[in-house]
């Protein structure tokens, strides 16, 4: 029971990760794939942040006074701050690529694009 309560957040992270991975594998729609990528990314953020949490702690902002509270670990927060911004940059580039693909092929379904590409005499 203690194990379940202690590890529940990690298991949820794994489930979210697998949901993102499933969308990326099984859906042919390119925008849907990017949405799956977003899910996957956010679950990774979650993994880091849950590892930094200390029970009964507060946010790592120093307070004036004699009694210093327990702080959570600031290092994962820093890493994830960087990762969030980079993740959005990645999605932006991917979406731009999708828009170009749509202009070129008139479709955002991966299998249709493969068929269209196979039919063309030369790219």
């Amino acid at each position: 029971m203690e194990k379940i309560a202690g590890l529940y957040s990690y298991w949820v992270v794994v489930v979210l990760m697998m949901a993102g991975l499933y969308i990326m594998i099984a859906r042919y729609n390119l925008v849907k794939k990017i949405i799956g990528l977003g899910l996957f990314q956010t679950s990774i953020f979650y993994l880091y942040i849950t590892m930094g949490k200390v029970s009964g702690g507060t946010a790592p902002i120093l307070v004036h006074g004699d009694v210093q509270p327990v702080f959570s670990n600031p290092v994962p927060h820093v890493l994830i701050l960087t990762a969030i911004v980079v993740g959005v940059a990645t999605s932006a580039v991917a979406l731009a690529l999708i828009v170009r693909i749509y202009e070129e092929f008139g479709s955002i379904e991966a299998d249709e694009i493969a068929i269209i590409e196979a039919q063309e005499p030369e790219a």
């Binding site: 977003g38 953020f45 930094g52 949490k53 946010a59 902002i61 994962p76 927060h77 994830i80 969030i84």
Partner: peptide, 15 residues
């Protein structure tokens, strides 16, 4: 809830 207020800020605005 997990004390990562800066991350929450960024995730809300950016994500």
């Amino acid at each position: 809830v997990m004390d990562a207020v800066d991350v929450a800020f960024t995730e809300a605005a950016v994500g």
